[in-house]
Design a protein around this nucleic acid. Structure first.
Lengths: 346, 346
DNA sequence: TTGTTTGATGGTAGCGCTACCATGTTAGCG
DNA sequence: CGCTAACATGGTAGCGCTACCATCAAACAA
């Protein structure tokens, strides 16, 4: 009567947690698993009474749907990959906020990746995120490594490249950095500054700051002026701005205006000028880029360019969502407008 | 010869993308799928030559592992859920940075959720994240809705509740807000301020600010002083700080010191005082909480309390990682030290 | 020799869910 | 009354991967 397998009465100890599954909910509710699935995902397609029984069973068992299994079966995960070069920069944080709000409202979950301005790391992140069957991808910048570019080209889901303007892989939401730099340069010339220096931080990596410098340089050239530049080899911060001011005062004492690559640097310099007893703008004028709240609260208020950060995030999200819902996209390339904020610092 | 099924020669059009799978890599490399899996996940367990053939096939096919399938099969996802009340606050951003760096280095991916200080939303996020089979959870605060608490209690993976100190569900990393508030109150008394007002923002939601107020109140009471408080009904910001200063000047003109719930408010007030031509600290002293860089760059420097934000994130991550690696945990409750930064604003 | 360990590989059987098709039931229509 | 459409539900067959066990050869000890 006993057989050879008697020593192993249970089929086999398997992996997996002991959490209730859809099947158990189905049994408890007296329906088939597929009906439970429908009751949870497309309630409209299920009879009201059945739905009630299902929700009851869910509550009673404390069932939490296994989203991983669902994603595998449906080959889509409601993840949106977001890849930015830095979290230290308030600009990206605000863009992310815009993205987060727009996507969360539609039930998408953001997977956040941070490249630290390293294209190798960017490629790695893209690979990983593709592995999660993301529904879409938002990435900062138009420049990627060749391998990464190839990976993205064959990926047939919506992609937004943001922050800068240009023709990219798929969708694009950005602002014209060259024009922004030119704009501020024009303003400084209008105010009769003639010895203008540009100060940036890590511009080999933050190449968008370099694009602004190009615009700046072009305008100065048209006015027959040189466009000297100082590059710091540390990321922008208030402290770095203070250091930069010292460098300018020492190396180019006749400078009458500094065009900073961002508000952190500019505000740091402005506060440092106060400590040094320098008048802004009488002794030296200071301009920034981004329009962070900070710059608008110091005295004198910082002249800067308001970049629409949350808006950029929101627009990027809307473009992706439009694609995902098969809605028409009128313009694959969105030029987000910026605004010049004239403070008293110039 | 023909049969009834002839009209459907192919088995059936199935879902799923056309991306290469592990199986195809295995065929290309002339090994079994399981060997490919091992070659990718535990290269040490595979012969060197076999490994080479596999990597070659991977490269050639452009294979990207489907992490969703892997997670389902292994019932673990290398996701870490991180739930914070707000992304608008620089404090949480820095904590997240600390978490991100520590987890990313070990190959974990953060799933970020934002409750907007809403316990209902928190519960919803926890449910969703549990559905992703996260390996661990980091959540801000010790207070959760009852349902959420229940869900977490039965979840047998590492949890860190952070930001505040106390006995929680599992692990805890935080600072003693009551003591921090007391500390600053003592400092203000030392400096002979006697008419001290506390100013907070949305303290029903930001209850940790309230804990600091409790500490503040206790110290003042010991000195026989009242502890008046003004609560703003908007979140902390530079602008809100300016508004708050106006309120204090109007409602309690004899105030000689303001203890703000955070640096944003305090710095906003400080800058506004300058605009009004008020001397800080001669006319009014100002103190904050957090030790954000901003407050250390204004003149006078802000007196504040340095909360170890990135450290808190890093420590939280380390606790989780220790659990995940079955390393011993000496203390389930970590009290992160804070430091009083005395500026010239008091 | 025989037994035991180690190293490399493979086969089987799911993980928990949803896409796809099929079925039955009721309503609507000429 | 037959025919179609709409609704409600169920069965089957995977999604792409890994846990678990088994196998087989080579190495080594007794």
């Amino acid at each position: 009567m006993s057989n050879m397998e008697a020593s192993s009465p249970e089929p086999r100890k398997r992996r997996g947690s002991d959490k209730p599954t859809l099947k158990q909910v189905a049994e408890a509710a007296g329906v088939s698993p597929i009906t439970v699935s429908r009751a949870l995902n497309t309630p409209g397609r299920v009879n009201k009474e059945t739905r009630r029984r299902v929700t009851e069973a869910v509550e009673q068992l404390g069932y939490v749907p296994n989203l991983i299994a669902g994603s595998l079966a449906s080959a889509s995960s409601r993840f949106i990959a977001v890849i930015v070069p830095s979290l230290a920069n308030a600009v990206f944080i605000e863009v992310i906020k815009g993205l987060q709000e727009a996507f969360e409202a539609k039930g998408y979950q953001i997977l956040l990746g941070n490249t630290d301005y390293d294209l190798q790391r960017e490629h790695q992140l893209v690979r990983t995120f593709l592995g999660w069957s993301c529904s879409g991808l938002v990435i900062a910048g138009l420049r990627h490594s060749k391998a990464c570019q190839g990976l993205l080209e064959t990926w047939n889901k919506p992609i937004v490249e943001m922050m800068e303007l240009g023709k990219g892989l798929d969708l694009n939401v950005g602002l014209d950095h060259r024009e922004a730099g030119a704009c501020m340069a024009r303003h400084l010339l209008d105010r009769h500054y003639r010895s203008i220096i540009y100060v940036g931080a890590c511009m080999d990596r933050d190449y968008r700051a370099n694009m602004r410098y190009e615009g700046h340089k072009e305008i100065l050239a048209q006015a027959g002026l040189e466009a000297p530049i100082i590059e710091l080899d540390r990321l922008g911060s208030l402290e770095a701005g203070a250091v930069a001011l010292d460098m300018v005062l020492e190396q180019c004492p006749r400078t009458d205006a500094i065009h900073f690559a961002n508000d952190d640097l500019a505000t740091g310099a402005l506060l440092h000028a106060q400590r040094l007893g320098l008048g802004v703008p009488q002794d030296i004028a200071i301009a920034g880029f981004n329009g962070l709240p900070l710059g608008q609260q110091v005295t004198p208020r910082l002249t800067t360019i308001q970049s629409p950060r949350e808006t950029m995030g929101r627009l990027a999200a809307e473009q992706i969502l439009r694609r995902l819902n098969d809605e028409p996209i009128t313009d694959k390339q969105l030029n987000v407008a910026f605004r010049t904020l004239i403070g008293e610092s110039t």
